[in-house]
């Protein structure tokens, strides 16, 4: 009895055995090594001079680190047929425009679905939620038919417009608004004569900033890693990720440059996540599915 009372008064961590703690630490370390070592290897490879990349027996650790691979990468970029800046522009442009549109249209729809009761609203949300259950490759071929009917094949639109309405974006935004925007505040804004659009923009949106960031990150990551696409044929419209794949196709001499390009490619999304981690986690707090 006294033990129970003690645990109630001091907010101690309950029911923890030393054996369990040790076991957990070991498992976590092993799993962590499995996740981390390949990432580390990418960075080490990018710093290895050519003779270390092709030595036997291969070493995990770099002995004489050099930035030569990065210099090679930039030389390669400058000599490519389509200027490399064009690939970078394509990826940045589609990522930014796609993400902004997604944030705006998904939030707008999420607000209406979360905070206004109207016939059909629930059905619409359920349809979107169901679409979380399948991967978009299932619809790739028929989407292509629609794209060609719209004459969007081989234009930026084919990449950008579908990104404006992602299921995950709307789902997370709607769930977050439901739990974090109070109806009372909205109601009083409406009573003051604010239009629904104004209420959305001035009252609701500032209250869901963590969800914005989450949506921005998901959308951006998705667009950032787009490689070759069945919708794009022209070399001038292809993505950064595609161009990096081409560097690897260059063979043995390019191994170092390729590792360098992978480091650059992974650095951007990782940095974005580091900055926004706490907001993303906060948004995921309301991601749960009740039924």
């Amino acid at each position: 009895m006294s033990r129970k009372l003690r645990t109630r008064n001091h907010k101690v961590v309950l029911n923890r055995s030393a054996g369990g703690d040790t076991g957990i630490t070991i498992v976590l370390t092993l799993l962590g090594a499995f996740m981390f070592l390949p990432m580390l290897y990418v960075v080490l490879q990018s710093l290895k001079p050519l003779d270390e990349l092709w030595m036997f027996p291969p070493r995990f650790i770099v002995r004489h680190p050099t930035f030569k691979n990065y210099r090679d990468l930039f030389t390669l970029m400058n000599t490519s047929w389509v200027p490399f800046s064009r690939y970078i522009f394509n990826t940045v442009f589609t990522s930014v425009v796609g993400t902004c549109g997604n944030l705006f249209f998904s939030s707008l729809a999420a607000y209406a679905m979360a905070k206004i009761k109207f016939p059909g609203g629930k059905t619409m949300f359920k349809t979107v939620r169901t679409s979380l259950m399948f991967h978009s490759t299932v619809t790739a071929i028929t989407s292509f038919i629609i794209m060609s009917a719209l004459h969007w094949v081989d234009t930026y639109w084919a990449i950008i417009v579908p990104a404006w309405a992602t299921s995950l974006g709307l789902y997370l935004m709607k769930q977050f608004m439901e739990t974090n925007v109070s109806d009372a505040v909205l109601e009083s804004a409406r009573l003051d004569g604010a239009s629904e659009l104004r209420t959305f923009w001035v009252i609701a949106m500032p209250m869901v900033k963590p969800a914005w960031l989450t949506l921005i990150i998901y959308s951006f990551q998705d667009l950032w890693k787009k490689g070759s696409s069945i919708y794009i044929h022209s070399e001038q419209l292809k993505s950064f990720n595609y161009a990096i794949g081409q560097i690897m196709a260059g063979g043995i001499k390019r191994a170092g440059a390729h590792a360098a390009s992978m480091v650059i490619m992974m650095l951007v999304p990782i940095m974005v996540f580091v900055i926004s981690q706490s907001n993303v986690i906060e948004t995921m707090g309301s991601s749960g599915m009740k039924d």
Partner: peptide, 25 residues
């Protein structure tokens, strides 16, 4: 609730065009 339909319209049109119709098609 006219305004609600205006708010969901852009999203739902794109969603229908590139997710719902491709499945049905």
């Amino acid at each position: 609730n006219k305004v609600a339909y205006f708010m969901v319209a852009p999203y739902m049109i794109i969603f229908t065009l590139f997710t719902v119709i491709p499945v049905l098609l």
